[in-house]
Amino acid sequence: MGLLDRLTPRKNDPDVPPSPSVVDDPVFATKALRKFLTTLTSRESPVLLDLGPVVGSNVSFFGEQLGCKIFVEDIFADLDRHVRDGKLETLAEFLKKRFPQENGTVDGILCWDVIDYMDKVSAQELAKELTRLLRPDGALLGFFGSQHRPDVRYTKYIIVDEVNLKYRTYPASRGKQSILLNRDIIRLFSGLRVSDSFLLQNNLREILFRKPA
């Protein structure tokens, strides 16, 4: 074995993990994630619901930081399937039965920006279900756009650390539907109270909800 072989991991070596990302994804600062984590650290083995596509590093991050149980329920995939199948009108009814978890059994929900992609009826049904699932004093982290975006893409959020997120877009069957006003968001999650709200430099609103104890 030459010197170079000793210094450079072999590509086909099963013990060498693949590089996390070939592309440099844009990074932005998050204010609400740390607060969201703080709400979960007070619980032993918290239960987390992630509504985005599975991101291995996020699963590892939460698992290692919190020792939690994570349910990955990719609502973007459900939405996409309904659009592709031309059954968007059944989405609200589908969401009503989507989550098998019992009432009040989830400590934290990562909603990301899925609400932006939904029509009003489906968004209302999803918000109702998430409120049902959340344990009293549990937290929900949602992202909401504040500017219209013409591109038809979903966004995958990748946690760098407690205060930084990367994002990576991927093809979608539909774009964001509308820019929700703060009051509309608050009405949507009427069973929760807004704990913290931030407008980031990239015009994304981060809202942390808590379920009243």
Binding site: S45, V54, G56, V59, F62, G63, E64, L66, G67, C68, K69, I70, F71, V72, D74
Partner: peptide, 12 residues
Amino acid sequence: AHFRGSVDMQRK
């Protein structure tokens, strides 16, 4: 990779 389900990781 495709994954659908839950992940339960105990604390270190």
